[in-house]
Design a protein around this nucleic acid. Structure first.
Lengths: 230, 230
DNA sequence: TTATTTTGTGTACTATGAACACAAATGTAG
DNA sequence: CTACATTTGTGTTCATAGTACACAAAATAA
């Protein structure tokens, strides 16, 4: 009943990065081998014989881009028979976020092969990677509304406006700053520090930080984030 | 850099069924071959050479249990190197729901190998299938609160109390019947029929049905189900 | 005929969401 | 150095949605 399989297993990662003021980007690499040689693609590759899936993603990311990941979760597994023109390859895709300070692409060996692209201006990608990207983008938007993953795209300490801009950028809609701030602060896991930051013109901003311990404690109580009102 | 792979790809399904009055069950099969011969396991098996993943699940379900699925979505991909004691096998798991009238297990060939088990009284399962089950149960609970998947566990026409009991059973908490009914009806995609059903003692109940078209139309407007208050 | 079981319904109170504008602190341009 | 532009920071009112709560109606069972 069970034919001998010749299916290969790959992992691919959709990694988002955010630079202040509305720059949401995705990390891509330019393929050096056929098929799709010289085409942009998501970082990723084949899983090794005795390697866990998540280990494989992290390894590939490090090898291909040098970027350090701050948040990583499994996204979806794509397995259509013809998604790779040559062999049958199923791809377990991952969804990742990086902080601005982990944003820089490594300067050595194949540095010019990896690059950040703004999400609104992506090239045509290899394989079904555009589909994978869209799935990730959808996940990012919906997850932002009920889990505090946005903080993994910001520095450890950030002005409140960074958080606002992150939300408006990703969701593509304006928010009321007073209501947003009131709501976020009501959760109790975002705390003001005593630092103040001045950037360009305008009143200097207090810096805030995300308190993961408090968040985890709330989670145990069946807490639900829920800022879908934004 | 890329060693020759010897990884096999399987699919497994966690299929939930619901019989009236608080009986939530999962579909299991008894394995006929090593490893884990004679141990209960989730239905599933290896993906064929040119077969889509979802096709594979449906095929395995049909072959092993004869049950017709009403709702199916991908759950998670499990890929720890030692999850199968013999070969490296990654499992793409699926999450399924069946209506009561599709509940019966086929009577032919290996019928006695498939069986419904109440979720609160599962045996120890083969491989990491207990983990897979737990992941599915969690998904069922959380999904019930923001997507109307509960209807895929009921008959096409059902008394309102069936819906209530479904929610109390799966979530494991009581609900206020008046508020629940008010909320569900406010969404507009549950409609009363003109049929009335009498079961045992008590006042006979109007039958209701789920209107998928109306639901889909709402979805396009960015509608969010949200009955997490239950 | 009485008790038991299940369905069906409305109102008052509370909490949360939504809408809204102006002063404070700094840099920048004339 | 003064006026203007830019960004941060903050409260109140109104509308909507959630929550708590009890009893009558229609049937069967004893």
């Amino acid at each position: 009943m069970t034919l001998q399989q010749e299916i290969k297993v790959a992992v691919d990662a959709v990694v988002f990065g955010y630079e202040s003021k509305g720059n949401l980007s995705v990390l891509l690499i330019k393929r050096g081998v056929e098929p799709y040689k010289n085409t942009w693609a998501l970082p990723g590759g084949l899983v090794l014989e005795n390697e866990a899936l998540e280990t494989a993603v992290k390894r590939e990311l490090k090898e291909e881009t040098g970027v350090t990941i701050d948040y990583l979760e499994q996204l979806y597994t794509f397995g259509k028979p013809k998604r790779d023109p040559r062999n049958r390859v199923i791809s377990v895709s991952y969804f990742g976020l990086v902080r601005p300070n982990h944003f820089k692409i490594k300067a050595d060996t194949d540095a010019d092969e990896a690059q950040w692209f703004p999400v609104n201006d992506l090239p045509k990608l290899a394989f079904d990677h555009n589909t994978i990207f869209q799935t990730a983008e959808k996940r990012l938007k919906s997850k932002l509304l009920y889990q505090p993953i946005g903080f993994d795209l910001l520095s450890k300490e950030f002005p409140f406006s960074d958080l606002e801009h992150l939300y408006t950028t990703i969701l593509g809609q304006d928010i009321d700053r007073r209501n947003f701030r009131k709501k976020i602060m009501s959760f109790g896991f975002v705390e003001a520090t005593d630092k103040i930051q001045q950037v360009g013109s305008g009143r200097p901003a207090k810096l805030f930080k995300f308190n993961k311990q408090k968040y985890d404690a709330l989670l145990d109580d069946g807490f639900y984030f829920d800022i879908k009102f934004v």
